[in-house]
């Protein structure tokens, strides 16, 4: 329900919005997002930490219509676990494990309102797993396909820059788990033609 309220509030604010400048200018922009990510999983560990940092970098091509296309990468924390004296068939041990991911995505976004964009992207998540068990290091990398959808609101602060926020839902096919991230967004149109 909290998410519903956030969405409604965001849409309502945007409806007051700033008028659209519908010119024929094309632009290349970069969008930097930093914020908080929550990992949703059916894994059953009491001590699993599912809250962490989320950051994205997008480079978008923005033609004169509603649709933009671009590339995205970034960093998203997924989870960590640190358990002492874990009982196993080999004796007791400490368990440490953590996972983060780096997306390599193609992203589409669409201006649905003057300051609001919907985005959808797909590509691969590079998954980085590390930790320790029985004194042996755990370390592995894996690739998962994935997808995300987001909504962003940006407010122009001058002719080429805008700030705002983004709500991002991500799905990791390999893990069959998802994250929801809320990010502060900084947009910079670095090239226009």
């Amino acid at each position: 329900m909290q998410i519903l309220k956030i969405i409604i509030a965001t849409v309502a604010i945007s409806s007051i919005g700033i008028s659209q400048i519908d010119d024929k200018t094309y632009s290349l922009s970069t969008e930097l997002g930093v914020g908080y990510s929550r990992y949703f999983t059916t894994m059953d560990y009491d001590d699993l930490n599912q809250n962490g940092f989320s950051g994205t970098v997008k480079v978008m091509w923005n033609p004169e219509h509603l649709l933009s296309i671009g590339l995205e990468t970034g960093y998203q924390y997924l989870y960590s676990l640190d358990v002492s004296d874990y009982s196993t068939e080999f004796g007791n041990t400490n368990v440490k494990a953590s996972m983060y991911t780096v997306p390599v995505f193609i992203v589409f976004s669409m201006k649905v309102l003057p300051n609001i964009k919907l985005s959808a992207g797909s590509g691969v998540y590079l998954l980085f797993n590390s930790g320790e068990l029985f004194g042996d290091e755990l370390s592995s990398n894996q690739i998962s396909i994935g997808a995300h959808m987001g909504i962003s609101y940006t407010y122009p602060i001058n002719n080429s820059m805008a700030i705002g926020g983004e709500l991002l839902y991500s799905y990791f096919s390999k893990l069959q788990d998802q994250t929801v991230a809320i990010q502060f967004l900084f947009v910079y149109d670095f090239f226009r033609y």
């Binding site: 998410i3 519903l4 969405i7 409604i8 849409v11 409806s15 649905v112 309102l113 609001i116 919907l118 959808m149 909504i151 709500l167 839902y169």
Partner: peptide, 11 residues
């Protein structure tokens, strides 16, 4: 689903 539906309706 919520996100998708609400935003398209607004659009």
């Amino acid at each position: 689903l919520l996100l998708f539906t609400i935003l398209f309706a607004q659009t």
